[in-house]
Computed example of a mutant assay.
Amino acid sequence: MKKIDISTILASAIHESKNQVGTLLYQLQSLKDAINNNDTHQKKIISIEESLKKLNDEWVEYLYLYKLASDGYELHVDTFLLDEFLDDQVFALFPSAKAKNLELEYVCDPTLTGVFDERLMTAVVSTAVYNALRFAKTKIRISATKNADFLVISVEDDGKGFNQSDDQQDVFLEGNTGLGLYFAELSATAHVIDTVKGFIKKESSLTLGGANLSVYLPQPSADQSLSFK
């Protein structure tokens, strides 16, 4: 009997579940459009919708994680204007922040550009923001800067920050699955120029006082092409 590749079966099941969540989101949107904004059930519908969106993003993350871990993901890098990229992230995630009465903003030099895989970084940012929604008191900030030969994309909050004094130091991005931080790290290290790999840092936020996850992505020099591996 042929050996069953359980990882492929699980990946297929996740893909199908993701499609089902997409269908539910479409039906929920139709329901929202059909009722009055002042309806007493509106808040419940919005809460369900945001939970489904988070679940849908998690399915996307798991599929990328499977491909990254099995070397089945082909990196698609390009040059992006960070102001546009971060604006897109805030636009997509703002309803989730609003549902929790949290402010979500982004900060970057409007001329800053970076070279990276947009799909992976979108998934990493959304994962980090969804986690920050659990701990932030009032505000979450996404930012992008240039640090030496690295593009740095950070997600900060004004929550309690990291607790490095006990065994809970890796709670950030762990959620219920324990895969969020692993996914962020794999996504960063997938970006390689020559022998320089991307990496992540967990720090305290100097601006908001809470937690800060920063993803460092190597950038090609002026005489290098987009030679990511």
Rank of each mutant, 00 (worst) to 15 (best):
K3H: 14
K3I: 05
T8Q: 07
I9C: 09
I9W: 15
A13D: 10
I14C: 09
H15I: 12
H15M: 12
H15L: 11
E16V: 09
N19R: 10
G22A: 00
Q27R: 10
L28K: 01
L28E: 01
K32C: 01
D39E: 04
I45D: 00
I45R: 04
I46L: 10
E50S: 15
S51V: 02
L52R: 02
D57Q: 08
V60F: 12
L63C: 07
Y64V: 10
Y64W: 13
L65R: 05
K67A: 15
K67M: 14
L68F: 14
E74M: 14
V77F: 09
T79D: 11
L81R: 07
L81Q: 12
L82Y: 06
D83P: 12
F91I: 14
A92W: 15
A92I: 11
P95T: 03
K100P: 04
K100L: 14
E103W: 10
V107A: 08
V107N: 06
T111A: 09
L112W: 13
G114I: 02
L120K: 13
T127F: 06
V129T: 06
I140Q: 08
R141D: 01
S143R: 09
T145A: 00
T145L: 00
A148V: 09
F150D: 05
L151D: 01
V152I: 11
V152E: 04
S154M: 03
G159K: 05
N163P: 00
D166M: 01
Q168S: 12
Q169G: 01
D170W: 06
V171S: 03
L173W: 03
L173H: 00
G178A: 07
G178Q: 01
L179C: 00
Y182A: 06
L186P: 03
S187P: 09
T189W: 04
H191T: 08
V192H: 12
V192G: 00
I193R: 11
I193M: 06
T195N: 01
V196P: 13
F199P: 04
F199H: 06
K201R: 14
E203S: 04
L208A: 03
L208Y: 15
G209T: 00
G210R: 02
L213N: 00
Y216Q: 06
L217G: 02
S221R: 14
D223W: 12
Q224K: 07
